[in-house]
Design a binder for these strands. Structure first.
Lengths: 155, 155
DNA sequence: TGAAATTAGTTTCGATCAAAACTAATATAA
DNA sequence: TTATATTAGTTTTGATCGAAACTAATTTCA
């Protein structure tokens, strides 16, 4: 590629593919009244049992404001409980309530089915390779961000 | 993957990779005071010479409201000109002005360099395979959307 | 001690976006 | 014709988001 065309430009395709997938998948759990941030939080709480908002932020790659908003929503719906830490009153320990666990076990199989369907319809290996390639790009982006010599692409 | 974990969940990685890449790349042309929608419009106008807002929407995968907002911004900055169609006064023909072309030729090499740098740092072939896999997913999503039997992932 | 700096989490603010409502122009068809 | 439907593009509306400001609790260190 010598001249720029959106058609073969990775950032462009990443953006629109991500939007399409998000939109398609969110239909699955929007039926349960759950947003993407809520869903991400649920996955991790279900897996780890109890986490602090900070830990949830790291695990879900969401900033603390977004986590906070998700937790407020989930609180209203009684999907989570908050337990103030005994030693440090700034930190809270978040758990799924029984209601929350219930909801999760309802949604999870639908999401898994959606994902399995996508994977099945892709050429062999392409799905796993895609995942791997995305992680490569993520690592590269982080390395770029850390780099001391900002914005110097043509060494 | 049998139990859901965000770590190996494609939609999750698509979303965060897309965000990271967008953020990193937008630094490149934010220096020129250009947003993502404006940038996409510029690429296509530079390539095709003249397009209507509708055509720009299709080409850039943006809805008409987003295109409209981008054009209003670019108008204020005198990057584009609008020519009302002689036969159908609803449609406009959008062109880059000389100022717009100038700006584009300033930004393009920087963007290309950024992209080349990313591609170079990825294992051989992985960049192209990634692009191809993304297109596969896009096609799949569209097919899902068109499908008559909505939301039937198992069978 | 106790003042200053740090940290966890919430709230505010401004920007952006998609969906829907809307305007103006054109096509259809009665 | 002229009424109705459709189309191109803009504007409004409500939701979401990240950055930054903010509050309260804790740690640092003088």
């Amino acid at each position: 590629m010598n001249k720029l065309e959106l058609e073969n430009f990775l950032p462009y395709h990443l953006s629109i593919t991500s939007e399409m997938v998000s939109r398609a998948l969110s239909k699955v759990y929007a039926d349960f009244g759950v947003t993407i941030p809520e869903w991400r939080v649920m996955v991790h709480l279900n897996h780890h049992g109890s986490l602090t908002p900070s830990q949830l932020g790291v695990a879900t790659s969401m900033d603390k404001a977004r986590v906070s908003r998700a937790l407020i929503l989930m609180d209203k719906k009684a999907l989570i409980s908050r337990q103030v830490d005994q030693w440090d009153k700034r930190v809270a320990h978040i758990c799924l309530t029984d209601t929350g666990k219930d909801l999760f076990t309802q949604i999870e199989p639908e999401v898994m089915a959606w994902n399995a369907c996508l994977a099945r319809d892709m050429p062999d290996q392409q799905h796993d390779d895609l995942l791997q390639a995305l992680k490569t790009v993520e690592t590269w982006c982080k390395a770029q961000g850390d780099s001391t010599s900002e914005a110097d692409y043509d060494d």
